[in-house]
Design a protein around this nucleic acid. Structure first.
Lengths: 136, 136
DNA sequence: AGAGATTTGTCCGTATGTATT
DNA sequence: GAATACATACGGACAAATCTC
């Protein structure tokens, strides 16, 4: 299966769809290496820019992580180590960190953060891929 | 102020930083029009690719929204119309929607979704820029 | 309705730099 | 050092959407 230049859907989206499907169906398991950019270029007969844009889509969805000089992998969904308990007048919002904040927190692209506003005025930030909100 | 080719920081990140700063400080208010791509190209003496990547950064952070044929605007943070109440064994996780799901939900890029798992097994999806989690 | 200008979307090519193996 | 892989940046070309006249 490959991408279709004649389709209405942009080729980089088709390629992202194709890889996302392999990830969500388990064909590409967490930790698996995505074929290199030149490899995908050759496999689908497309430009490198197109491949890179597809990767950018998947990174933005938190599905893959890329390391310069090495390659791109299916992200390991970390076991949720943090359980956030809220009660009373606590409340929670969610947002994506800025590029700067993301680096400071050591987060991958496409990972939102929980902003936990405690009733006492304190503010906690938690990466949203390692946390789950419960009551009590 | 403009970008510096000699800096360690990539130029498209510098441009994103610059615009993000104007947005967060209120210099560019919600609804304000971002200068067009050719305008920014000329203003900073950079390539269009660089400008577009800066925009992609800001879109991914949920700060701006882009419409083909029109332009790019500072996002209106919608009034929070949804309040999610959780209690008992309800729990909440957060993720970014896939490209396909995002279109189906009519969401901008960079907007996470709440996944509310009810104790009775039901599953609710809420755009995370229009929701707030509380107890009770 | 139509034409033209403006603006963003997609795709390709090339070149160079940086990081890892 | 060499080979491989991703990062950044430029340029050009055409398509698609929107707006104005």
């Amino acid at each position: 299966m490959t991408v279709d230049p004649g389709s209405d859907r942009a080729m980089f989206r088709q390629l992202a769809d194709l890889l996302r499907d392999q990830i969500t169906t388990g064909k590409l398991r967490p930790g698996a290496l995505i074929p290199s950019e030149p490899r995908l270029v050759q496999q689908h007969g497309i430009g490198r820019d197109t491949v890179r844009r597809a990767m950018a889509v998947l990174r933005g969805e938190g599905l893959v992580t890329t390391e310069q000089g090495t390659g791109t992998w299916v992200r390991q969904t970390p076991s949720r180590t943090v359980t956030i308990r809220i009660q009373g007048d606590d409340w929670v919002e969610v947002r994506l960190p800025s590029d700067i904040e993301r680096r400071k927190l050591g987060l991958d692209e496409g990972i939102p953060v929980f902003e936990v506003h405690r009733a006492n005025g304190e503010l906690e930030i938690h990466p949203a891929d390692r946390a789950r909100i419960v009551t009590g």
